[in-house]
Design a protein around this nucleic acid. Sequence first.
DNA 1: GTCTATAGTCGGATAGAC
DNA 2: GTCTATCCGACTATAGAC
Lengths: 230, 230
Amino acid sequence: MPPSSLYPKTRTRHSVADPRQTLIEAGLDLFARYSFEGTSTRMLAERTKVNLAAIQYYFGGKAGLYLAVADHIVEHVNRYLAPKLAEIQEILKQGPSSKQRSLRLLCELVEHVVARFVGISETDKWLGILVREQSLPTEAFDIFFKGFLEPFYETLFALVTDIQGSGPDDPEVKIRAFTIMGQVFIFRMSLAAVKQTLNLKDYGQKDLEMIRSVILDNVQAIFAGPGQDL
Amino acid sequence: MPPSSLYPKTRTRHSVADPRQTLIEAGLDLFARYSFEGTSTRMLAERTKVNLAAIQYYFGGKAGLYLAVADHIVEHVNRYLAPKLAEIQEILKQGPSSKQRSLRLLCELVEHVVARFVGISETDKWLGILVREQSLPTEAFDIFFKGFLEPFYETLFALVTDIQGSGPDDPEVKIRAFTIMGQVFIFRMSLAAVKQTLNLKDYGQKDLEMIRSVILDNVQAIFAGPGQDL
DNA sequence: GTCTATAGTCGGATAGAC
DNA sequence: GTCTATCCGACTATAGAC
C-alpha cells in the first residue's frame, strides 16, 4: 500500500511524504499524551496534515493505527535492547554459570536500562503508552509483552537464578528480579511524583548519575552481601 | 445538596438511596477501568440507575465527578495510611534519631504498604486512576499529591535520612527512598507484566508473603550492610 | 430533587470525485 | 492514492415539566 517507487507519480494535490510513517510518529506522541480515547482522528489529521481518510486507508481505522504504533515502539526498543539481551545470552551459554559473572552482567543490564529508559526523555512518549497498557491492558499489551517484556524478563531471570544459585523455577528468583527493576522503573512510571518531590523539571546529568549509582549500590548490597548462598 | 433527612420525602419516581455516594462508587470503578475519556456519563447513569442529569446536578459535570472520586480515594487511603505516618512521626520526635529505630520503622512502613497496596486487590480500582495520573497528570494529581503522596514521601525521607545519617537535604536520600518504594510499587504498577510472567491470576497468600520477605530482605541488605556510614 | 427530551457538538467511518 | 463532503451514532450538557 505505501508508495514503492522512488519518485511520487502524479500528485494532484499537496501531500505528505510518507503518510504511513508520519501518522505513526504523530500517534506515538498523541496517544501517549492524551491516551487512545483522548486522541481523535481529527487531531491526528491536523497535526500531520495528512487527510482524515488516510487513517482508514493505511490502518483500517484508529485502532489499527494504535497497534501500528505499538509495533513501532517494540521495534524502537529492540533496536538497543535486543542486542544487549543477545550479548548476555551468548555469554551465559559460554562455560558454567558463575555468580560473579552474572552479577556483573546484571549490573551492565541495569545500567543499560537506566541510561536508555530513564535517561532519555524522548522515552517519555511511548512510555506513557506502555504504562497505561500495564494498568489497562488491551491488544497492544501482548505486542509489548511478546516484543520485549518477555525476552527482557527471561534474561533477567536467568541472571538472577545464577546469582542466587537457585533452581530453575524458584519463584523467589522472579520476585527478586522484579524488585530490582522496580528500582529503575519507578523513576519513569512515577515520574510526576518524583519530579514534584525533587523539584525537578527533568532529569539532569547529575540526577541520572546518582540514580545509577544508588541502584547499582543497592544491587551489590542485595546480591553480594553475606548470608547469600541460600 | 444530598438528602439530609432520614426518610426521603415525597418521591414521585423511583430513585437511588444516595446518588452522590453511588455515583462516586461507580466512578471509582469505571474511571479506573476505562479511564476518564473512556467512561461516558451514560455508562455511569446506567450502572448506578441514577438519572443522567444527576451528574450535572451533584457534581457539575463528568469532570467534577472525577475530582470527587479523587477526593474519595485520598480519604480512603488516608484512613489507614495517615495513622501510620502520624505514629512514625510521633516516634521520630521522641529522643535523638537512631539508625536502628528508623530502620525498624522503615520496615514496618514497607510491610504496611505491601499489605495494603499490593495485598488488597480492591486496590486495583483506584490504583489504576493513580497510575494514569502519574503518567498523564491532571488536576486530580494535585489532589493525590497533597493528599497522601507528599506526606508519605516526607515521612519516608525522614526515615532514610536517619538511617543513612545524612544531612537534611542530601539528594541521595530521596533517590534511595524512591528505589525502596519502587520495589513495592512495581507489583501493582506493572501488574499485567508480573501476572503474565508469574502465570498468576492474582496474588495469593504465598505470593504476598514472598514479596514481603524479599523486599524486607533487600531493605536490610541495602541499609544494614557494611560500608554504610558514609 | 428527579426526570424526559433534546440541543449542540464531536466522534469514527465512508462514498465517491479526482 | 488523495481529498471533500457527509453520514450517523455517541457524547456532554441543559431546559423545563413534574
